[in-house]
Design a protein around this nucleic acid. Sequence first.
DNA 1: GCCAACGTTGGC
DNA 2: GCCAACGTTGGC
Length: 154
Amino acid sequence: MMGRNYWLLKSEPEAYSIDDLSRDKSTYWDGVRNYQARNFLRDSLKKGDRVFFYHSNAEPPGIAGIAEVTKEGYPDPSQFDPKDVHYDAKSDPRDPTWFVVEIKFVKKFREVIPLERLKKVPALAQMPLLRRGQRLSVQPVAEKEWKAISELTP
DNA sequence: GCCAACGTTGGC
DNA sequence: GCCAACGTTGGC
Protein backbone atom coordinates (compact mmCIF):
# COMPACT_ATOMS: atom_id res chain seq x y z
CA MET A 1 0.00 0.00 0.00
CA MET A 2 1.27 3.44 -0.96
CA GLY A 3 2.45 5.43 2.04
CA ARG A 4 1.90 2.73 4.57
CA ASN A 5 4.23 2.95 7.53
CA TYR A 6 5.35 0.41 10.05
CA TRP A 7 5.56 0.47 13.83
CA LEU A 8 6.31 -1.61 16.85
CA LEU A 9 4.17 -1.53 19.97
CA LYS A 10 5.34 -3.05 23.23
CA SER A 11 3.05 -4.69 25.70
CA GLU A 12 3.63 -6.87 28.69
CA PRO A 13 1.63 -9.99 27.84
CA GLU A 14 0.48 -10.28 31.45
CA ALA A 15 -1.24 -6.95 30.91
CA TYR A 16 -2.35 -7.42 27.30
CA SER A 17 -1.07 -10.08 24.91
CA ILE A 18 -1.45 -11.01 21.26
CA ASP A 19 -3.93 -13.64 22.44
CA ASP A 20 -6.01 -10.95 24.08
CA LEU A 21 -6.02 -8.99 20.81
CA SER A 22 -6.89 -12.15 18.88
CA ARG A 23 -9.85 -12.65 21.19
CA ASP A 24 -10.96 -9.00 21.16
CA LYS A 25 -10.29 -8.52 17.41
CA SER A 26 -9.55 -4.86 18.07
CA THR A 27 -8.62 -2.57 20.93
CA TYR A 28 -7.40 0.91 21.65
CA TRP A 29 -3.84 1.29 22.78
CA ASP A 30 -4.20 3.08 26.10
CA GLY A 31 -1.89 3.82 28.98
CA VAL A 32 1.07 5.24 27.08
CA ARG A 33 2.57 7.90 29.35
CA ASN A 34 5.74 8.90 27.56
CA TYR A 35 5.83 12.04 25.46
CA GLN A 36 7.82 10.69 22.55
CA ALA A 37 5.53 7.67 22.27
CA ARG A 38 2.53 9.97 22.70
CA ASN A 39 3.67 12.08 19.75
CA PHE A 40 3.80 9.03 17.53
CA LEU A 41 0.32 7.93 18.61
CA ARG A 42 -1.14 11.39 18.20
CA ASP A 43 0.57 12.47 14.98
CA SER A 44 2.19 9.64 13.10
CA LEU A 45 0.30 6.34 13.21
CA LYS A 46 -2.10 6.37 10.28
CA LYS A 47 -5.00 4.18 9.32
CA GLY A 48 -3.70 1.18 7.40
CA ASP A 49 -0.25 1.26 9.01
CA ARG A 50 1.03 -2.10 10.13
CA VAL A 51 2.26 -2.82 13.63
CA PHE A 52 4.45 -5.47 15.18
CA PHE A 53 3.03 -6.57 18.52
CA TYR A 54 5.99 -6.99 20.86
CA HIS A 55 5.89 -8.88 24.15
CA SER A 56 8.11 -7.25 26.76
CA ASN A 57 8.90 -8.67 30.16
CA ALA A 58 8.03 -12.03 28.69
CA GLU A 59 9.70 -15.39 28.28
CA PRO A 60 11.02 -14.98 25.71
CA PRO A 61 10.68 -11.29 24.92
CA GLY A 62 9.97 -10.85 21.21
CA ILE A 63 7.55 -10.09 18.40
CA ALA A 64 4.35 -12.06 18.78
CA GLY A 65 2.29 -10.97 15.79
CA ILE A 66 0.90 -8.23 13.60
CA ALA A 67 -1.86 -5.65 13.98
CA GLU A 68 -3.17 -2.82 11.83
CA VAL A 69 -4.12 0.73 12.72
CA THR A 70 -7.85 1.22 12.25
CA LYS A 71 -8.37 4.61 13.91
CA GLU A 72 -5.91 7.45 14.26
CA GLY A 73 -4.98 9.32 17.42
CA TYR A 74 -7.68 10.50 19.80
CA PRO A 75 -7.62 11.31 23.53
CA ASP A 76 -6.92 8.38 25.85
CA PRO A 77 -10.07 7.91 27.98
CA SER A 78 -8.07 6.40 30.84
CA GLN A 79 -6.40 9.73 31.63
CA PHE A 80 -9.75 11.13 32.81
CA ASP A 81 -10.86 8.16 34.91
CA PRO A 82 -9.86 8.59 38.57
CA LYS A 83 -10.28 4.86 39.15
CA ASP A 84 -7.89 3.94 36.35
CA VAL A 85 -4.23 3.30 37.11
CA HIS A 86 -3.40 5.57 34.17
CA TYR A 87 -5.45 8.46 35.54
CA ASP A 88 -3.72 11.82 35.09
CA ALA A 89 -5.22 14.57 37.22
CA LYS A 90 -3.17 17.18 35.40
CA SER A 91 -4.62 16.43 31.98
CA ASP A 92 -7.19 18.98 30.85
CA PRO A 93 -10.09 17.45 28.87
CA ARG A 94 -10.11 20.55 26.66
CA ASP A 95 -6.44 19.97 25.84
CA PRO A 96 -5.70 16.31 26.56
CA THR A 97 -2.18 15.16 27.22
CA TRP A 98 -2.39 11.49 26.22
CA PHE A 99 -3.58 9.76 23.08
CA VAL A 100 -4.49 6.33 21.81
CA VAL A 101 -4.94 4.68 18.43
CA GLU A 102 -7.21 1.77 17.60
CA ILE A 103 -5.69 -1.37 16.18
CA LYS A 104 -7.13 -4.63 14.91
CA PHE A 105 -5.73 -8.12 15.04
CA VAL A 106 -4.06 -9.31 11.85
CA LYS A 107 -2.09 -12.38 12.80
CA LYS A 108 -0.34 -14.21 15.56
CA PHE A 109 2.98 -15.76 14.66
CA ARG A 110 3.20 -19.49 15.13
CA GLU A 111 6.08 -18.74 17.47
CA VAL A 112 7.25 -15.51 19.01
CA ILE A 113 10.31 -14.17 17.19
CA PRO A 114 12.65 -13.82 20.13
CA LEU A 115 14.60 -10.64 20.76
CA GLU A 116 17.67 -12.85 20.78
CA ARG A 117 16.95 -13.82 17.15
CA LEU A 118 16.38 -10.24 16.05
CA LYS A 119 19.76 -9.27 17.42
CA LYS A 120 21.45 -11.65 15.01
CA VAL A 121 19.95 -10.10 11.86
CA PRO A 122 22.35 -7.54 10.36
CA ALA A 123 19.55 -5.61 8.60
CA LEU A 124 18.00 -4.86 11.99
CA ALA A 125 21.08 -3.44 13.66
CA GLN A 126 19.71 0.11 13.56
CA MET A 127 16.38 -0.70 15.19
CA PRO A 128 15.77 1.33 18.35
CA LEU A 129 14.41 -1.85 19.88
CA LEU A 130 17.89 -3.35 19.84
CA ARG A 131 19.64 -0.35 21.26
CA ARG A 132 20.78 -0.70 24.79
CA GLY A 133 18.59 1.15 27.23
CA GLN A 134 15.97 2.05 24.63
CA ARG A 135 12.60 1.80 26.34
CA LEU A 136 10.31 3.56 23.92
CA SER A 137 7.04 1.63 23.77
CA VAL A 138 5.93 2.97 20.38
CA GLN A 139 8.68 2.84 17.76
CA PRO A 140 8.90 3.34 14.01
CA VAL A 141 10.03 0.36 11.95
CA ALA A 142 11.73 0.92 8.58
CA GLU A 143 10.26 -0.89 5.59
CA LYS A 144 13.42 -2.93 5.07
CA GLU A 145 13.31 -3.91 8.73
CA TRP A 146 9.68 -4.92 8.41
CA LYS A 147 10.56 -7.11 5.43
CA ALA A 148 13.58 -8.64 7.09
CA ILE A 149 11.52 -9.55 10.13
CA SER A 150 8.67 -10.89 8.02
CA GLU A 151 11.13 -13.25 6.37
CA LEU A 152 11.96 -14.78 9.73
CA THR A 153 8.45 -16.11 10.14
CA PRO A 154 7.32 -19.41 8.67
C1' DG B 1 14.67 -10.12 41.98
C1' DC B 2 18.48 -7.22 40.30
C1' DC B 3 19.88 -3.24 38.35
C1' DA B 4 21.35 -0.20 34.27
C1' DA B 5 19.39 3.17 31.61
C1' DC B 6 16.37 6.54 31.06
C1' DG B 7 12.51 10.10 31.94
C1' DT B 8 10.39 13.14 35.22
C1' DT B 9 10.10 16.03 39.22
C1' DG B 10 11.13 19.67 42.11
C1' DG B 11 14.35 22.39 45.13
C1' DC B 12 17.44 25.83 44.53
C1' DG C 1 18.27 26.12 34.08
C1' DC C 2 20.87 22.72 36.75
C1' DC C 3 20.93 18.41 38.64
C1' DA C 4 20.02 15.05 42.49
C1' DA C 5 16.46 12.13 43.76
C1' DC C 6 13.12 9.26 42.46
C1' DG C 7 10.18 6.15 39.61
C1' DT C 8 9.79 3.16 35.63
C1' DT C 9 11.18 0.02 32.00
C1' DG C 10 12.54 -4.24 30.69
C1' DG C 11 16.39 -7.58 29.79
C1' DC C 12 18.66 -10.82 32.26
